[in-house]
Design a protein around this nucleic acid. Structure first.
Lengths: 337, 337
DNA sequence: ATGAAAGCGCTAACAC
DNA sequence: GTGTTAGCGCTTTCAT
């Protein structure tokens, strides 16, 4: 096996504890002689010693690692979030370990358990829809954790999310102001609370502008497996049979096949059908026409998430008030609306 | 602190080792009485026992975790790769922990060290360009590891990469067959070996088709910070002053601002300037014209990477022959060429 | 100033 | 069949 403290001690001709103290930079504090300190550093370097973190963490009871359960690594929103979380965590001296749940409840729970068993100092969760029970249970554990993007309003936890209601309201009202009257919307078949909020924002904007909500214009597609064929048929149906003049895509993953369908069916954007999409994307400004979207302040979400989590890690208090933060999205008007 | 084996043993009225054996599913093998087994499971459940993996891994000397050092989580190629690696690792019963290096050498080395200290069973590295020394050193450690996408041909390691030479050759020849004669190419200012290969493939295709290589038509942009302004000026220069009729973008990250520049300068694609880009992208078929690209077999790369790594983890042999795999890309012809 | 020893939670060898 | 115990590599208290 690898080089241990004992090996270094033997080589330096000292006791293990002295080596431990010195290599942790507390040599001077503990009045270890300069000569001993040098001997130990030399020995460690010569033997290429690396501390075994399993042993250290076991002993110390902490790890300096934050676990991030990401719902889908290949989702642009979440991987941008991961990138910023990573950078932020690092600023506080924490490593961010990212593990994906592949949007599956069982897997999400398993990953949480793995992080728990590994005694991660804190957890950031981009949860799946059906793990309320696990989240509740997590509150009884001793781990600080925080929900990001997706949350469970009925459970008292830390969270950092978007004001989804307002975002959807803004998008819908924007379309109305552009003179659109028959505005359709695409969402998922899912139990996510934040998707309900988006739907409510859409309805509220219609109502406030004197447009009657029409259930037929709301389409929910499968959360995991969106088929291009179905999407095309959906769009065709909305335009031909329902006579819509705009679509508010509540997510990127519905928007992309949706726009593709509009292209193939050769409906003129925005004259025949105007479009607004949730979550901005690098490519939206490269499409023709350029796509209007709702951009989330991803970096701010990351900064705030890490700040709150680290705060809870440092000031361990069980009775601590949970932190609930909501950010606003920004509507980027382009040519599709 | 949390519930330990000792607590479970006390509650069940048994010894710790019996609990350990039973909870590891080896109760029947070790002829523990059915009654005892039940008592232990009940106790564990009642106390909500979770094994401490730090302790277990320390004792066992392995972790069942593979560490993946990803150069950039938000790079679509790499996060698709991460997703497939994750799925594959899981099939073998391994967790994949993803940590980003942000394309920085020091950070990449640090992450490797963290994984090493945590005694990860194996490492998959999407390395940064300047860590040859670390990779060499890694061979003296006892950890199985594998380089993916980026590799160091001079160092004898496992790797799974693309045949970059061939890919670039194909792309360039494709443009030539389309009647293009003054073909420019975009690459990075970087020491990556695989980028050299791409450049060589480009040159070889020119040569084989009787076109003289023109150094002026090769542009290298900064690896980390590609400015849209500069990109626009580069493209303008190539078209106006060098009279090019095609561009082979050697990476997505150069292609996207490059195409943007072509749009803004209103050069007709493919008539005035034809385009081929390395790495396919969901959006390429949505742009107008649709972009011709070189698609990498990401899933196969992931499958093979995990297979090779796990094989080395299972059959620990120091003298093992290193595995070197090269995949071919596929040219997807669309409208931009 | 430095070292010996206990113990973090677990597993596995060995008693009984 | 089941329990006792050594020890994985580290940190930390307590002697000296």
């Amino acid at each position: 096996m690898s080089v241990t403290l004992k090996d270094v001690a033997a080589y330096a001709g000292s006791g293990v504890s002295t080596v431990s103290v010195v290599l942790n930079g507390k040599g001077v504090d503990n009045r270890i002689s300069e000569e001993m300190i040098k001997r130990i550093y030399d020995a460690a370097e010569h033997l290429n010693y690396r501390p075994n973190m399993l042993a250290r963490n076991l002993r110390r009871g902490n790890t300096n690692i934050i676990g991030f359960v990401i719902s889908d690594v290949s989702n642009p929103f979440f991987n941008k979030l991961a990138k910023h979380l990573e950078a932020e965590a690092l600023k506080y001296g924490y490593q961010l370990f990212v593990v994906g749940s592949d949007e599956k409840d069982e897997r999400c729970i398993e990953v949480i358990n793995v992080f728990l068993s590994l005694k991660m100092d804190g957890l950031i969760l981009a949860a799946t829809a059906g793990i309320e029970k696990k989240i509740k249970q997590l509150r009884n554990h001793e781990v600080p954790f925080l929900l990001v993007d997706r949350y469970f309003p009925k459970i008292d936890t830390n969270y950092v999310v978007l004001n989804n209601w307002q975002a959807a309201y803004d998008a819908t009202e924007h379309l109305i102001k552009k003179g659109k009257k028959r505005i359709s919307t695409f969402s998922y078949e899912t139990k996510f609370f934040h998707m309900d909020e988006r739907m409510k924002g859409y309805k509220a904007a219609l109502k406030d502008n004197g447009i009657r909500f029409n259930k037929k214009l709301v389409l929910k597609v499968p959360f995991l497996d969106i088929k291009e064929e179905d999407m095309k048929e959906n769009v065709r149906f909305l335009v031909e049979d329902c006579n819509i003049d705009a679509i508010f895509f509540q997510t990127n993953r519905t928007a992309i096949p949706g726009i593709m369908a509009l292209y193939e069916l050769e409906y003129k954007i925005p004259d025949k059908v105007a479009i607004v999409c949730f979550d901005d994307n690098n490519f939206f400004k490269m499409l023709s026409p350029k796509i209007t979207s709702l951009a989330q302040p991803i970096e701010e979400i990351a900064i705030e998430s890490v700040r709150i989590l680290i705060d809870e890690i440092k000031n361990k208090r069980v009775d601590k008030q949970k932190s609930k933060t909501m950010f606003s999205s920004r509507l980027i008007e382009r040519e599709s609306s």
